[in-house]
Design a protein around this nucleic acid. Sequence first.
DNA 1: ACAGATACTAAGAAGTCCTTAGTATATCTT
DNA 2: AAGATATACTAAGGACTTCTTAGTATCTGT
Lengths: 88, 88
Amino acid sequence: MKKGMTQQKLGELLGLDPNNASARMNQYERGKHNPDYTTMKRISDILDVPVSYFYCEDEYESSILEATHHLNTEQKLLVLAFIKTLKP
Amino acid sequence: MKKGMTQQKLGELLGLDPNNASARMNQYERGKHNPDYTTMKRISDILDVPVSYFYCEDEYESSILEATHHLNTEQKLLVLAFIKTLKP
DNA sequence: ACAGATACTAAGAAGTCCTTAGTATATCTT
DNA sequence: AAGATATACTAAGGACTTCTTAGTATCTGT
């Protein structure tokens, strides 16, 4: 984490109300509550990954999503074609 | 949809309380409410896709997740390697 | 038309997250 | 070290969402 980054600033970067950004970030970091969809979406935008990334159940799945995220349509179709060549 | 499949039966297959399976499935189908995570997970298990599938924002992304879901680790690594060969 | 099955809904209960206001802990500054 | 300031953290109630209940509406077969 970047030096000097506080829960407060982190929350503000996510567009949370500055009046409660710190409390909310703390609740998220400590697992007390989960961010709502809007917040998840903002996090995914900032990290430049798809929202689905956060629901992945294995690390390879998430890596593949991350790597795929910026490909164009043609390239995604190539990936799909490649997967189909693999033995079931 | 299979003939004779009712909202009631569908909900029971998902492990919902039979006393309200019909009401809940109806609320989901008509967009009145959204299923909680536990229910989403059960749906994903039955459909044999990862939960992340439901959070995909484009159809190629979801297809790739679906196709990847049953690959073994070695194969997933091959997919990752292939993606890295694509021009950025 | 009637009976039974299925679809659908309103409204209150229950649960989750957000907000507020504050305490605890860490980190400066003198 | 003591006090001041910054940061981390939390309890409790409010707001919002879903679940449950109980019932009405619509469809289907006879």
